[in-house]
Amino acid sequence: MSQTVTLTIDGRQVQAEAGTTLLEAARSVNIQIPHLCSNEELAPYGACRMCMVEIRQGQRTRLVASCIYEVEEGLEVQTVTERVLNVRRLVIELLLARNPTHPTLLKMAADLGIEKTRFEVEVKGCILCGLCVRTCREVVGVSAIGFEGRGTSRRVTTPFNEAPPDCIACGACATVCPVGVIPLKDKAGIRTIWKTDYPLQRCESCGRIIAPVKQLEYFAKITNQPLSHFTEHCVHCR
């Protein structure tokens, strides 16, 4: 049986199971901490730094990423302090310099009293939260995309910038992207993603589109079922 821990978040007593992150514990009592790179389906990553909170340990306080830091008995957490807000303000302004127009970022900025970034804008779109890369690896399980470069040259790409050999065209990366910068297009029985065309499978019974052929082949492989198991009927005519 797992152990229950009692801690204080913004002055409120909160009970949470050991192993819960501060972000989850806060959410359980409806204290919302802004975050961009955290997703409950993925392992904690702690890269965007929007979810920073201030914790007190004895006389000392320090900032930690609430998406990683786990609850501790008696821990005092403040989710809104001047230090915390300064980090969030900086982070959102820095991200707006890469993507000055996306509503999600603009809303987060507005919540912090920021209309626009003071930094020089160089539009890149992607905010490098890594949700796509981690979803592809941890949820889909194919690692078709990854990061290249370091520092400001870091970007998400396919191996050697070519058609990704392991991609199953499932589109999870595009779906999870918080700023919608991964292009995905379905047209005339073809899905285009990562600059590559993938044929879409039609239901053998009703003719509706089910999913990319490569995705169904991947399902067949990991479930050890014949491909026909996934192509004979679709969710609509099963």
């Binding site: 820095l94 520092g151 870091r154």
Partner: peptide
């Protein structure tokens, strides 16, 4: 440091770059 930042977290990757600018 801008060139040696791994690029994972926002303050280091973008912040050092903007400070340098």
């Amino acid at each position: 440091l801008e060139e040696e930042s791994c690029g994972k977290c926002t303050p280091c990757r973008e912040g050092i770059y903007q400070m340098r600018k």
